[in-house]
Design a protein around this nucleic acid. Sequence first.
RNA 1: GCUCAAGUGGCGGAAUUGGUAGACGCGCUGGAUUCAAAAUCCAGUUCUUUCGGGAGUGUGGGUUCGAUUCCCACCUUGAGUACCA
Length: 938
Amino acid sequence: MKYDFNDIEKKWQDHWAKNQTFKASNASDKPKYYVLDMFPYPSGAGLHVGHPLGYIASDIYARYKRHKGFNVLHPQGYDSFGLPAEQYAIQTGQHPALTTETNIATYRRQLDKIGFSFDWSREVRTSNPEYYKWTQWIFIQLYESYYCNDDNKAKDIKELTSIFSAEGNTTINAVCDDDTSSFSAEEWNAMSSEAQQRILLQYRLTYLAETEVNWCPALGTVLANDEIVNGVSERGGHPVIRKKMTQWSMRISAYAERLLQGLDTIDWTDSLKESQRNWIGKSVGASVTFNVNDHDATIDVFTTRPDTIFGVSFMTLAPEHELVAKITTPEQTEAVEAYIEKTAKRSERERMADVKTISGVFTGAYAEHPFTKEPIQIWIGDYVLASYGTGAVMAVPCGDQRDYDFAKHFGIDIPNIFDGVDISEEAFADKEKTIIANSDFLNGMNYKKATKRAIYELEQLEQGKGKTNYRLRDAVFSRQRYWGEPFPVYYVKGMPQMIDGKHLPIQLPEVEKYLPTETGEPPLGRADVWAWCTESNAIVGNDKIDNTTVHPLELNTMPGWAGSSWYFFRYMEDAMRTETFASKDALDYWENVDLYIGGSEHATGHLLYSRFWVKLLKDRGFVNVEEPFKKLINQGMILGTSAIIYRISGTNKYVSKGLKQDYDVEEIRVDVNIVNSSDEIDVEKLRHWQPQYKDAEFILEDDQYIVGREVEKMSKRWFNVVNPDNICEQYGADSLRLYEMFLGPLEQAKPWNTAGITGVHGFLKKLWKLYVGENGLNVNDAEPTKDNLKTLHKTIKKVEEDIENFSFNTSVSTFMIAVNELTTQKCTSKAILEPLLTLISPYAPHIAEELYSQLGHDESISTAAFPTFDASHLVESSKNYPISFNGKMRFTLELPMDMNKEDIEKTVMAHEKTIAQLDGREPKKVIVVPGKIVNIVG
RNA sequence: GCUCAAGUGGCGGAAUUGGUAGACGCGCUGGAUUCAAAAUCCAGUUCUUUCGGGAGUGUGGGUUCGAUUCCCACCUUGAGUACCA
């Protein structure tokens, strides 16, 4: 019987689906284990061979955990809201819901071919109203919460209002936009409801505010900081400018410290934790208040070096700073305004491109030094960012290189406040070596002492205090797009109101045009959705809000990361109940994700936002975990190998790679699927591939056209995409799974090369031959030989270690060695061959399942227990270990693997004596390495 | 600039408590089988050599009986971040 992988794989995939083999139970005596993949965005292009890499790895782990006796939850779904579906809708006029549906069907068909053990009964789709109902609900919970600094957790906003009406806000220690204004209980109670609402917005964890946002005109929407890369949009690479808009924001900054601390409790890679730490950007220092001379105004600055306060010789404000207009003197107004206009015009990208150019303008105003009372010039300059700290700095040119350069450029004083340091060439910023001088009460102190003292003195003057600053900004949550979750929000007199939970979900209306506008008007704002607004307003009207007035709904939609910030909880629900986002029983049982596998590109987006939402849900008592993902692994990208042909400029002639240096050529990428493994292109196929090649002339070398190669991201535009469907057809899903693992370490980026798959495919054929001969099954009840047992047990040991360490690539080699050995040993023993199948089954489930059934089992191999390792089979039977003397006074003694420590010591001692006698000297040192080699050095 | 990761044959990569470097696979070479091809099987494949050996894991040092592995400096590549006060 032949190994007919197409039949076998189809058979078992159908079998698993029909019998719901991998359906997880929410009630089980077994310990739970939750394995999750980052769910895909179903794009129109379908899957290429790079996409399933992480899914295969998690599937191997999930199947392994089942063999190990765990109740495994391994779900899958779709992150189905987002820009590309909408862009496609704009181009073709097709509703995004339809194209999304089609794309999901394609994805599902492709995924099913690879034989994953997903529990599809729990599938989620973020664009499904039944799902986004709860995304809207969580939004309301954020709105109804504030962050209490005393208890370090989010609380119900109602607690805040009751404190306000009893005590005012003076006793409150909560995260707030404006912590300077205070009011009494009487004042609060006397306020209009609108004024109260306005104040509460400063406390809510999601809030509406006019903020400077990243506006992308080409996409017609605002973007969050993590959606911008090098000053252009992550998607599409369009320019981004700063713009003031009224937007919903998420007060993630309230959680900065907890997001930072939590990293120490989870098992993620150091590089990933590090990038989250950098993104949060904690810095400890002080805030200092400077009085502005001749004005009733103060400027707050943040500094990490309060010890250098006596070195301040000027101040710099960001051009956008609110005080600039107020304090600028009439003589300087023209220059200042010109400068502001100039900087505002520059895009983020331009600004980043020339960080070298020093620019700024003097405002004409002066501030007063808190201690010396000397006047200090106030400048504006675009090296100060409005979005970091307070948008103003106290400049200490002797201690900060940027301040130094600025002072040099504009001829400002550079007083030296460091003992024994030369600052004639550059600033001195080494905290560790700092000794303060020329600084009154700080003289002679080091950095630590001086910092402490400076803060103390500032506090005495009430002009400063110790402060920790975070780089992490609140995340803009509104998108001026169509294909996203609608907000559960309507407006009364311009103030936002939440729609009652019983009306959720607020569904997306049908629209005729999806196109966003350049001005920021959302697609939902067009006339064609007005009916929706008023219709939904009727819902609001049911709540006894003035039925005759039209209360507009929020017309923006939520960003892509909204739905993905909590989907892992939805999977826990087995019955898809509708009363809660996930039932308490389910949440209690599954807790959080034990293993999460996905790409590292989500380091500062999805993975940070999810942690934030989970912390909020915990604070408000809806879940009982602090972190969503206990262990996280980033799979590396599989890259494509593009094929390049060389066109002689201005002609339709193409030269082979070896001859290109003789011509003036341009590189053109062509379909990799018509190039063979020796880089030779099939010219006839190329002629048919695209019309411009039909009559082209090809200049060959050795009768061949050889292409150039380039390893780059797998993408349609480079024509280097390899489709997994084709691989499954030609070699089978088991070959694809094994090969993707075999390519290299999971976490590393690696190029795809279809030619290499014959190696693992050949292994599967050999495996089949080991079990099934010409005349049927080769397996019998023969007693296993010592060699058989040795092969099996060393394989068990290695494979178990490999899976636990996520070194899936090396276990494939281990299988190959095992099958080669057993073939050589002519092993037919069921006692060996059956457990071997269990080892292989996580990697190549179809062939394992088929052979397991041929061995006479009715139940699925996924219920089989992982074989137990027995070290005794690895111990050599021979009693004398070879001792060799290599002439360099070194003796080598080979010991069996897994010998226990005592025995090793005894053996070594025995030999030590022998060696000492042989050599006539005492050995100096004995090095014992269990399972390896022992050296006794004379 | 800063942070992190990584540099091993023609190629992907093994060798992670320091112990025979190059497992396993691709490719290549030779052979068997075949009318031939595909498929399959066998042997070889780091470099060098006067066939005794010698050199060798980015470069240069160091620790050690012993270093791909640990330490220091440097070079290169990739990823992230960037006027962060």
